[in-house]
């Protein structure tokens, strides 16, 4: 079983190690794996097997969460290639990107006091979503397109996506407060 617990998430799901994934397919495989491994399948089994099943099902859940989220998937894939995205330890970012982020944050701060907060928030949200999508495409090219592989750029992109994800969450939070 150690063999299965040591498999990487792509191997576990029987999928090729690539950034581009068919999410419907990932979801289907996830459900099929859980049908086999979930502790409910071992309700009357001996303790040892139940423990094994809890471990396996937990691993499959974690793998699914990682594979279905593009940012987590990108980070994980880079990790498999020996590259640590180091969001916590390495805070050096592209200055142009940082400038953009600071401007975004300033707009976000001022939006609360605006008379037209929801509409302004909507504009910000669209902008962030576009920036996000553009980077996902870039990440895909950096990781998957033969001849274009650029792991350094991929690392940079994942780090930027992490930023954008945080901003997105904040926008949603403010929206929630306003409604």
């Amino acid at each position: 079983m150690q063999a299965a617990l040591d498999k990487n998430y792509f191997e576990l799901f029987g999928l090729p190690e690539s950034f581009s994934l068919d999410l419907t397919e990932v979801t289907r495989r996830y459900r099929e794996l859980q049908q086999q491994l979930h502790p409910d399948r071992f309700a009357s089994a001996p303790d040892q097997q139940r423990r094994l099943s809890v471990q396996m099902a937990a691993l499959v859940n974690e793998a699914f969460q990682t594979l279905k989220d593009p940012v987590r998937r990108g980070r994980y894939l880079l990790g498999l290639k020996g590259i640590d995205t180091g969001e916590e330890s390495d805070t050096a970012m592209n200055p142009a990107f940082l400038m953009e982020q600071m401007e975004l944050r300033e707009s976000l701060e001022s939006v609360r006091d605006s008379d037209n907060a929801l509409a302004e928030l909507g504009v910000l949200e669209t902008g962030v979503a576009d920036a996000f999508d553009a980077r996902i495409s870039r990440l895909q090219a950096c990781l998957d397109e033969s001849g274009k592989e650029d792991l350094k750029m991929a690392r940079e992109t994942v780090r930027e996506l992490q930023f954008l994800q945080k901003i997105r969450a904040e926008i949603e939070q403010i929206e929630e407060e306003l409604v």
């Binding site: 794996l33 094994l52 396996m56």
Partner: peptide, 17 residues
Amino acid sequence: FAARRMDAGMRKALTGH
């Protein structure tokens, strides 16, 4: 044996699909 069965179950889940 239990470990092998679970491993086989996983393979079956994926090929069965």
